[in-house]
Each structure stands twice: as structure tokens, then as C-alpha cells.
Design a protein around this nucleic acid. Structure first.
Lengths: 213, 213
DNA sequence: CGGTGTGAATGCTTTCACAGCC
DNA sequence: GGCTGTGAAAGCATTCACACCG
């Protein structure tokens, strides 16, 4: 498998999500252009990197294409696909403030390959007050629980002040990827993947985009 | 002001956030490289697009640089800057499920130019059960409240099923930008800015990045 | 010196355009 | 006829390298 560039990879992830919602059996790159806003040429190029010659002259078979994309990216279409292919990622939530507590609800990851299996907070009060369908621990136990439970990903919802140090601890614990809800730019070894989804940064990006036209 | 490219714009937004946390008076592009992971050359290029010749040979003055960036992007450094420059953006939350309810907490946007001033949900129950420091309305009143209150941005936290139709209604109401927490790719006129921050998409992106090395 | 600002060069991505296929 | 797959071309973004400045 040749290397897939970052923009292309992100489009393919979104494309897979879009295809999951498509009811028709077949779809063409021009139809996908309408559904995505990306040019049909770009979509064809993205797909052509995968080794799938299925689409010739009649558009793509939706289910088949989705399977090929997920295969190539190592992700799952939905929960049954996740089970069938043995792809399952344990996640933990670090920081049980308002936002973290909201994400405790596993329904957010319903029908995906992800499941939240632990929550941590530095404040023991929080772990005792809140309840979830999985255990909540004081942050002091991260170093034990994360390796023991083979948790791979972390959702970081602590305060900006503690974000960097918590992230470093997560890396020590062997975490492979972090979804970062803080507005701090985390400085971590390149081997650790980070996705930034801060609400404040998102707002500022929106505002700047509009302001510059 | 010449056009700023999207990657550059996003870096500048993050840079501003980073500068806000820097305590020193001056900073060089090499120091910024360590704080951001971006090359010093790229940082200098980004800054050179702004009309600011302040940095010559001694690094940049942190406060001054931050002010110039915010000026150029039309964003605010913090709440006092927001007041001083008269930049203030009203936002509403659409969809008061777990995630939406968590964002009701205005502390998330503490010390920013953004304030949440209304919440909407199709289910009247939700608007009655929940409480916030601003009013919650049934979705049927969006068309009245949003123009009346001059709300500019929306935070979309409805279910995937209703995301597209709700977004279209928001556009009709005159909303300028949407922060989209659903995993649906919204199809909207180009004049409306959208930032996608779906937890599920973020996870899939993380997973794909790791899986491809 | 240590550091910026910036043309020139390199490296990526996207778009074009068309052969080949159903 | 309509659509994919793909080299070639065009368009962007990043990095280099160095003149210039305090």
C-alpha cells in the first residue's frame, strides 16, 4: 500500500461515513461531488490509490467501495463490521468536567469500533459523584489501569492548565492517540497521534474564515 | 489585505492562542517552532503576510504580535480585547442532548469573544427540564429568535438524522457559521462557514492515522 | 552574531483532459 | 453515452538559503 496523504486520508474517512448513509446500490463520482463538495476528479484520485478497480464505467458499488476504504484505512464501517474484522478500540476519558461527563454517555460511539471503558479525574469527588456504565478512577491510577485494560486512545477534556502534563502522562501510559478538547497545542512525540477539536479553536477558526471572506 | 490561505489561517489562529499563554516579552520563530511543531520558516512566512515589520532581528514582541494576528483575522485575544475592539459573537446551541447540554455551560467560552445566548431543541421536554443562564426555546421558535437576537453562530449538536435539515433551517434564519458536532457532512451554500468537530470523525481520523503509520 | 523577511526552488495536491471500458 | 482511471499540467504550500538589519 503506497502512502496516502493527509488531506486524502481525511476525505476518505468522511467519504466512508457518507457512504454508510447512502441507500442506493451504486454511486458515481459526480454524485459524490454533490454530496461532499469535493471535485469528482479529486474523489476519483483518492479512490484510485486504494487497490480497487471496481468502478469502471458504471460508478462504484456503494457497499463494496465503503468496505475497500475501511480496509485500507484500518477503520470500521459500523459495529458489526468492527466485530467481523476484529477491530475494536478501547478509549478513556480524562477530565470529568461538564464536557467529559457528557462524553461518558457511550451512545456517542454507538455503532462504531470505539468504546469508552474508563474515566479519570484528578478530583476524587468527581469520580464518586458521577456514574457510568464503566468504572471511573482517580487520575493517580492511570498508570495502572491504562496498560492493564489495554486502552489505546484518550479523550482529553481537562482544563487548559493541566492539559500538557496530563497528555504527557497519557503518553507514558502507552496511549497511542489523543482527541484533544482543550485549546492547548500539545507538544508530544511524533509517534503519538493527536486530533484537535477544541470548541474555542473551532469558533475562532469559524470567525476568522468569515471575517476574511 | 492580501488573501491568507486556509492552512496559514488555521496556524495563525492557533498561534494566537499559544501566544496568549506565553509569559516572556519576546519570542523568536525558532522558539515558536518548539512550541508548535511547525517549521520556523513557515511561521515567519505566515507572519510576513500580515503587515507587521516588528520582528526584525530581535524576535517578535509577544503581545504586539498577538494583537496584529487578531487584528488581521478579525478575532479577539480574550474578553477584554473583545470588548475594547467591539468584537462579540452571539451563538446558540441547537440540540440539547447530552453533548449540547454540556456546552450550555458558558464557562467553556469564558474569556473569549463568544457567548451562548440561546438554546433550542425540537423536544419541548428538554427545554423545560434543563436550565441555563440564558433562555431555552423549542426549535419552532428558531426563525423568530435568531434574527431578533442577532445570533450569528450555531453549535449543532442534534442527531445525525436531523442534522442536515436543522442546518438548512439555521441558514434560513441567517446564521453565518456552524460548528458541527454531528458526523454528517453538511451540504450548505458556500457563504455559510462550517467547522466539523464530530467526536466520531475525530476518532476515525485518529485511528486511520495510526493505522497507516 | 542571532534573527527576520523573502525570492527562488522544491515538493505536494488538485485539476485537466482524454484513452479505455461497459 | 456516460463513467472511471490516470498521466500531464497547473496551482499551492513549504522549505531553503541568504541579504539585510540591530
Amino acid at each position: 500500500m503506497k502512502k496516502i496523504s493527509e488531506p486524502s486520508r481525511k476525505r476518505l474517512v468522511e467519504l466512508s461515513q457518507i457512504l454508510s448513509a447512502v441507500k442506493d446500490e451504486r454511486i458515481t463520482s459526480v454524485q459524490l461531488e454533490a454530496l461532499t463538495g469535493w471535485s469528482s476528479a479529486s474523489i476519483r484520485k483518492d479512490i484510485s490509490q486504494l487497490d480497487y478497480a471496481g468502478g469502471v464505467s458504471n460508478g462504484y458499488k456503494v457497499k463494496e467501495l465503503n468496505a475497500v476504504i475501511c480496509q485500507a484505512l484500518g477503520i470500521a464501517q459500523d459495529e458489526s463490521d468492527s466485530k467481523a474484522r476484529g477491530i475494536s478500540h478501547k478509549c478513556c476519558i480524562v477530565g470529568l468536567g461538564k464536557l467529559g461527563a457528557a462524553l461518558l454517555e457511550n451512545s456517542i460511539f454507538f455503532d462504531t469500533a470505539f468504546s469508552v471503558t474508563a474515566g479519570f479525574d484528578a478530583n476524587v469527588n468527581r469520580t464518586e459523584i458521577l456514574s457510568a456504565s464503566f468504572p471511573l478512577y482517580p487520575a493517580s491510577r492511570m498508570n495502572q489501569i491504562i496498560p492493564e485494560e489495554k486502552i489505546e486512545y484518550a479523550i482529553l477534556t481537562v482544563s487548559n492548565e493541566t492539559a500538557q502534563s496530563m497528555a504527557e502522562r497519557l503518553v507514558e501510559c502507552g496511549i497511542k492517540g489523543i482527541v484533544n478538547y482543550t485549546s492547548v497545542k500539545l507538544i508530544l512525540p511524533k509517534s503519538v497521534a493527536v486530533e484537535n477539536v477544541s470548541p474555542v479553536t473551532a469558533m475562532n477558526n469559524l470567525s476568522a474564515k468569515i471575517s476574511l471572506g
